[in-house]
Design a protein around this nucleic acid. Structure first.
Lengths: 227, 227
DNA sequence: TTGAGAATGTGAATTCATTCACAAAAGACA
DNA sequence: TGTCTTTTGTGAATGAATTCACATTCTCAA
C-alpha cells in the first residue's frame, strides 16, 4: 500500500476528500447498506462521480462494475490509508478555551485520536483534572512526551508563546504537530505541521457575503468545501 | 471593487491566501514596517513570489516597482475585500465544549466577528452568562436573529440535531452559516455554508505520518497549508 | 542626473486537478 | 443462456492554478 501510494502522487485534496468519504461510509455502515455507487457518494458530497472514482482508484480496484463499492471494505481500506484503524497517542498543550474544548471533543476519540497527556504552564491548572487526565507542568514536556510514546502534539496556547512551545516539542522528537494558535510557526523540514485556523472559514463567509452576490441579490455560485 | 472581483473569477485558494497575507500584514504593521516585497511575503508563507503577486494583482496594481507593497494600504485593501474592516453580528448556537471555546476566542473579536447572541436548548444553560452574553432559549431563535440583525450564524451543536437547527436558521433568513458539527448539512442554493472539520487536519497528519516517509525515515515532501 | 539594482505586473508556459467518454465487467432477469 | 442495464476504471481532453520569464518602472546612492 505504501509503495503504491507513494508511486502515484496523491494530492492533498484527494486526502481531504478521503476524510469525507470515510465519514459517509461510517454512516452507511451503520445503516447496514452493503454497497454504494460513486454516483451516490458524489451526490452526498456535491462532487462528480468521476472524481470519486478517480480518488478511489489511486488505491487500487475496489468496486464491482454494475454494483458499486462494498461499504465495509471500502471504509476499512480508507481507514488504513488515513491511519484511522489504529489509535494515536496525542498530547495537548494548553487548556484554555480551545484546549478544554478539544479534550472533550468526542469525534477525536471516535477516530482513534486519544489525548493521553495535557500540559499547561499555569500553576492553578497544573494538577487539575480534565476528563480523567491530570494536567502536567509544561516543564516536564520532553520527558513525559517520550515516556508516553506521544506521536502527535496539539498546540492550543496563546500565539505569543506558541513558537517557544513548538521548539520544545520539536526538541522532544515529535514529528507531527497540529497548531491552533493564529500564527505562523517555524519547524524543521522533517516535522509535519498543520494549522487549524478557525477564523479562516469565517473570513471566507464574510468575503462571500460581500462579493459573491450579484446586484439582484442572487448567489453567483455555490460554495462547497471542494469545488 | 465588487464588479472587479466578480469579473475576473477569484479562486477559493486565492481568498484563503488573502487571509494569510492579512495576518502577516497585521504583524508587519505593528512592527512599523512601511513596505513589504512579494519575496518577503512569500518567504513567510512558504509560497512563491509570483503567486503572491498574482494574488494581489486581482485587485489592481498596488505595489511600487523596486520597492514593494505599502503595508498599511495593502492591509486595508485586503481587509476591505475580506470584509474585515467592519463588524459582523454573529449568533452562536450551542454552548457545549466547542461553543464555549468560541465565545472566548479573542481572534474573532479582533477581526470584527462579534458574537451578539448565544442559544441553547438546555434549561440549565439558558439564562446563564457567557462573557457577558445571556444564553437564550433556542425556541426564540427566529425572532431574536431578526431583531438583532444577525448576519452569520455559527452552529456548534451535536451532529444529531444540527440539521434541524440549520433548517430553522435558514427559515429565519440567514444566508451565511459556519458549521462545526461533523456532519453534512443541506441548505438551499442561496445560503453559504462552510464546515469547520476539526478532525480533518488531524487525519491529514495521521495520513502523512503513515504515508509520507520513505523507508529511510526521511520526509518525502513538506506539507504546507497550500502547496 | 544618471546608472545600477530591485521589484512589480503580466502574458506565456507549465504543471496539476477535474471531467469526459467509453470499453469492459458484472448483475438482473427473462 | 443471452440481452439489457448498471457501474466501474481509466486514458484523453479539458480546465484551473501555479510558475516562469521578462519588459517595465521605480528607488537609491553617488
Amino acid at each position: 500500500m505504501i509503495s503504491e501510494s507513494s508511486r502515484r502522487r496523491i494530492s492533498e485534496s484527494t486526502v481531504r476528500r478521503l476524510s469525507l468519504y470515510y465519514r459517509i461510509l461510517s454512516v452507511l455502515e451503520k445503516e447496514n447498506q452493503a454497497t454504494v455507487s460513486s454516483k451516490e457518494l458524489a451526490r452526498r458530497e456535491k462532487l462528480t462521480p468521476a472524481q470519486v472514482r478517480k480518488d478511489l482508484s489511486f488505491f487500487g480496484s475496489f468496486g464491482t462494475r454494475g454494483l458499486g463499492y462494498p461499504v465495509c471494505e471500502l471504509k476499512k481500506r480508507i481507514g488504513e490509508i488515513l491511519g484511522l484503524n489504529r489509535t494515536w497517542n496525542i498530547a495537548l498543550i494548553g487548556v484554555g478555551n480551545i484546549g478544554s474544548a478539544l479534550v472533550g471533543y468526542k469525534e477525536f476519540q471516535r477516530q482513534g485520536f486519544h489525548i493521553k497527556l495535557i500540559f499547561d504552564n499555569d500553576q492553578r491548572k497544573i494538577g487539575s483534572n480534565h476528563k480523567g487526565i491530570t494536567v502536567s507542568d509544561i516543564k516536564n514536556l520532553g520527558k513525559e512526551l517520550r515516556e508516553n510514546n506521544i506521536e502527535i502534539v496539539i498546540v492550543a496556547v496563546p500565539a505569543t508563546v506558541a513558537q517557544y512551545i513548538v521548539d520544545d516539542v520539536v526538541k522532544a522528537g515529535i514529528k507531527a504537530i497540529l497548531n491552533f494558535a493564529p500564527i505562523n510557526l517555524k519547524v524543521p523540514e522533517d516535522v509535519f505541521l498543520r494549522n487549524e485556523n478557525m477564523s479562516m472559514e469565517l473570513e471566507y463567509l464574510s468575503f462571500a457575503r460581500i462579493n459573491l452576490y450579484n446586484d439582484l441579490g442572487t448567489r453567483i455560485r455555490s460554495i462547497q468545501l471542494f469545488e
